[in-house]
Design a protein around this nucleic acid. Sequence first.
DNA 1: AGTAAAACACTAACATGTTAGCGTGTCAAG
DNA 2: CTTGACACGCTAACATGTTAGTGTTTTACT
Lengths: 165, 165
Amino acid sequence: MNEARMPRNLPLLLLQAREAVISHFRPLLNHAGVTEQQWRILRALCELGELEPRQLCEICQILSPSLTGVLARMEETGLVARRKVDSDQRRLLVSPTAKGKALVKRMAPLVTEQYRLLEDALGPELVRDLYGVLDRLVAVKDVPVARVPLSAARPAGRRKERAGE
Amino acid sequence: MNEARMPRNLPLLLLQAREAVISHFRPLLNHAGVTEQQWRILRALCELGELEPRQLCEICQILSPSLTGVLARMEETGLVARRKVDSDQRRLLVSPTAKGKALVKRMAPLVTEQYRLLEDALGPELVRDLYGVLDRLVAVKDVPVARVPLSAARPAGRRKERAGE
DNA sequence: AGTAAAACACTAACATGTTAGCGTGTCAAG
DNA sequence: CTTGACACGCTAACATGTTAGTGTTTTACT
């Protein structure tokens, strides 16, 4: 018969790959008292300087609503500072505080060392191939979108019914 | 000076890669009324049959506390069923319902089609390399863990202080 | 048999992901 | 100058990620 088996689950594979890598860094970040997202933001700010929230969204792969909360907590703990832009009242500028920069400076050698250990375990070729392939993947544009037949898909009637209505 | 720049952020790159892929499937899943996690679980159950929660955790890369909630919601909407195992009162067995299987069967062609479009955009070599590299990465074991100097890292004193204490 | 350790699913508390929508500020067309 | 479209950061509501810890059932060892 048909049954036409689906292709491998690529998003899942990428998730597993990411977990395989990040698991070796999580202990370091936990010990430093920052989350993965906070670390991404701090790194970006220390490497690129003052940035706007929307830039951080793109660079750190964090959606705007999440970023709002993350930045609020980081401001609370004194890792970053936010200031308004005079020329455009809509925009903000986020910068790392002295405390934030100090944390990055403290963590950098540890992160680098752990990365080296990981590289040793993976081997230079795999690491090189990894960056090569992923960079190519991320650079891909213009992937067409399949049209949904409108008839297919659609479970029962669970389409956003609020509880209190 | 030193400043010793850190290596590239590999977990971030993997996150970006995953987003580049999953973004093309999210509309399909949304339209079907299931989340990414629910889809991973349904696929696993339909391809491998009845599974225990801890197996689903491993296969679908979902932590136990998250899985508890996801399965509860899926049982609520009638996509899966849970039953206890007699031989071991601790364990459970999760299986897809008729409704769950039907959803997978409906979605399969759409997912496969979208995957084909993605493959066309990426090119066969890149897809092949992608799986090759990621499979090798996931398979890596025995990565040593860097010892944290105990003195380094550690922001101010924000180490799990409860609000009501 | 009897006990300590481990396995399993679960809860709790917090942080983030995801979608929809809101309010204000900016800018361009009329 | 005004209006309408858009950009930006935000809130709201729900689902999931993450860490710590709990209660119960098994298992291993004495």
